Computed example of a mutant assay.
Amino acid sequence: MIDLSNYELAWPVDLFVSEANHLTATDHNSWVSRAEWLLTEAFQGASACSDFQDLPATAPHSSYWSPRSDPPPWEQAPVVTQETWFRELAGRAKEVRHVTEPRPYWPQRQGKAAPNASAGSYSVAHAFARLIGEMHRNGYLAEHFGQECVDVYADLPDAAEVLERRLGIPLLWPLTPGEWDEDTFLGLVEVFHDLVSRPRDCWYHSYSQCGWHHREFHAGPARTLYRWQVNRLLASAGVQYRLADEGEDQGRLVAVTDDARADLVHRALAVADPDIKQRTTHAIALYRGRGASIEEKRSAIIVLAGVLEERRDLIRAELGKPDDGALFQIANRFEIRHRDASQQEDYDPAFLDWIFWWYLATVELTTTIALRQRVGE
Score class of each variant (00 low, 15 high):
Tyr7Ala: 04
Glu8Pro: 07
Trp11Ala: 07
Trp11Asp: 07
Leu15Glu: 05
Val17Thr: 06
Glu19Asp: 04
Asn21Trp: 13
Leu23Ala: 00
Thr26His: 13
Val32Asp: 08
Val32Glu: 06
Cys49Thr: 12
Ser50Phe: 11
Phe52Met: 01
Gln53Asp: 06
Ala57Thr: 14
Ala59Met: 01
His61Ile: 11
Tyr64Val: 15
Ser66Asn: 08
Ser66Thr: 11
Ser69Gly: 07
Trp74Lys: 14
Gln76Pro: 04
Pro78Trp: 07
Trp85Tyr: 04
Phe86Arg: 01
Glu88Leu: 05
Ala90Gln: 00
Glu95Lys: 04
Pro102Gln: 05
Tyr105His: 12
Pro107Lys: 03
Gln108Asp: 07
Gly111Arg: 03
Val124Tyr: 00
Phe128His: 00
Arg130Gln: 11
Arg137Glu: 12
Asn138Ile: 08
Gly139Glu: 01
Asp151His: 15
Tyr153Trp: 15
Ala154Asp: 14
Ala159Gln: 13
Val162Met: 05
Glu164Tyr: 06
Glu164Ala: 09
Gly168Ile: 03
Gly168Cys: 02
Leu175Ser: 03
Leu188Arg: 00
Val189Tyr: 01
Phe192Lys: 01
Asp194Arg: 14
Val196Asn: 01
Ser197Asp: 04
Ser197Tyr: 04
Asp201Pro: 05
Asp201Trp: 12
Cys202Asn: 12
Trp203Gln: 11
Trp203Leu: 12
Tyr204Val: 09
Ser208Gln: 15
Gln209His: 13
Cys210Ala: 03
Gly211Phe: 00
Trp212Ala: 06
Arg215Thr: 15
Ala219Val: 03
Pro221Ile: 00
Ala222Leu: 04
Thr224Ala: 12
Arg227Met: 14
Gln229Lys: 11
Gln229Ala: 11
Leu234Glu: 01
Leu234Trp: 02
Ser236Val: 15
Val239Pro: 05
Gln240Met: 09
Tyr241Lys: 10
Asp245Leu: 15
Glu246Asp: 10
Gln250Cys: 11
Gly251Ala: 04
Thr257Tyr: 10
Thr257Cys: 11
Ala262Thr: 14
Ala268Pro: 01
Leu269Asp: 00
Ile276Glu: 12
Lys277Ala: 12
Thr280Gln: 01
His282Gly: 15
Ala283Glu: 03
Leu286Phe: 06
Arg288Asn: 05
Arg288Phe: 06
Gly289Asn: 09
Ala292Ser: 05
Ala292Pro: 00
Ser293Arg: 05
Ser293Thr: 06
Ile302Trp: 05
Val307Ala: 08
Ile315Leu: 09
Ile315Gly: 04
Glu318Ala: 07
Gly325Lys: 10
Ala326Arg: 15
Ala326His: 14
Ile330Gln: 09
Arg333Gln: 12
Glu335Ala: 14
Ile336Gln: 01
His338Met: 03
Ala341His: 12
Ala341Phe: 11
Glu345Asn: 14
Glu345Ile: 13
Asp346Tyr: 06
Asp346His: 08
Ala350Asp: 13
Phe351Met: 02
Phe356Asp: 02
Trp357Thr: 00
Leu365Val: 06
Thr366Leu: 06
Thr367Arg: 13
Thr368Gly: 10
Ile369Gly: 03
Leu371Arg: 14
Gln373Met: 08
Gln373Phe: 07
Arg374Phe: 09
Glu377Cys: 10
